[in-house]
Amino acid sequence: MNLELLAAQAKACVACALSRQRTHVVFGEGNPDAKLMIVGEGPGEEEDLQGRPFVGRSGQLLDKILEAAGIPRTSVYITNIVKCRPPQNRVPDPLEAKTCTTLWLIKQIQIVRPQIIIPLGATALEFFAGEKLSITKVRGKFFEWQGIKVFPMFHPAYLLRNPSREPGSPKHLTWLDIQLVKKTLDELGPKQGVEIKAIQQDPLF
């Protein structure tokens, strides 16, 4: 199995109600051998229209954050918890999230085998943490999920709503966070094979 074949299968997915109003399945994109994977919540309007993740305002800010830290977008793999846009950009419901992660996200992780995963926002964090946690309380710290380092960060959409760059602001903390991610990436050696188990039922941006 490779990402192209998996993406082709996902484009025909009708496993949950989100498939009924989508324009495109937004499967994911990037380096299939990436050391870093970024996982958001779900596609927005622009992503649904283009069929690509993080291409709207949040995606443009994410690009600036990565660029500021010296991490090319092309070097990472970017996807979401759900692959179809929820109506009015609402939070995916638990069944939608479970269906989509079981069918697609777990398999994406198995293929890419990232060394670090950044969940952006509360929905993505909940999947990897296995419980609801506050991003403000856990950001800036690594934890482990199936042998992979997980580093939660604020979603760019949250940063757009909180534009201050003052010390302690979400943007300032995100600048500190992405620098730590870059430092950790640089310190990691060559990628090691990891077995992912199936889940059962600042200044520059």
Rank of each mutant, 00 (worst) to 15 (best):
G193M: 00
E187P: 01
R22D: 08
G70E: 07
V181D: 05
I178D: 08
T79N: 07
I78P: 00
E126I: 03
K149C: 04
E195D: 03
G28R: 04
D177R: 00
G56W: 02
P119A: 08
V194F: 02
E166W: 01
Q88L: 09
L176Q: 14
F154W: 10
G42Q: 05
L125S: 01
L6C: 08
L173T: 08
G140F: 14
K98F: 04
M153Q: 14
D63P: 01
G193D: 00
V25W: 05
G56A: 07
R22S: 10
I199P: 00
K141S: 11
I111G: 00
D33A: 10
I65P: 02
L103I: 10
K191W: 00
K141V: 08
L3I: 09
L6H: 08
T99I: 10
G51M: 04
L204N: 07
H24G: 12
K149V: 00
L66F: 15
K11A: 11
Y158L: 09
K64C: 11
G42T: 12
L6W: 13
P114S: 07
L185G: 03
Q60F: 01
Y158F: 13
P43V: 15
G193K: 00
P119E: 06
A15P: 01
L95I: 13
K132V: 08
S19H: 15
C100T: 06
G59D: 05
Q201C: 03
L3H: 05
K183Y: 07
F54V: 02
A97T: 10
I118W: 01
A10H: 06
L185Q: 11
Q200D: 11
S75H: 05
A198P: 00
W175T: 05
A12V: 10
I199A: 04
T123C: 12
L180Q: 07
A17H: 15
G70M: 11
G70F: 04
P72R: 11
G44V: 12
G130F: 12
M37A: 13
C100G: 13
H172T: 02
L62F: 09
Q110N: 06
A10Y: 07
F205T: 14
I196A: 00
S164V: 13
P163F: 06
P170C: 04
T101D: 08
L61A: 12
V82F: 07
T74G: 10
G70V: 10
L120P: 03
S58T: 07
D186G: 14
L120H: 10
D202T: 09
R57F: 11
E96R: 09
F142E: 09
P152H: 08
I116N: 01
P72H: 12
P94K: 15
I116L: 12
E4H: 02
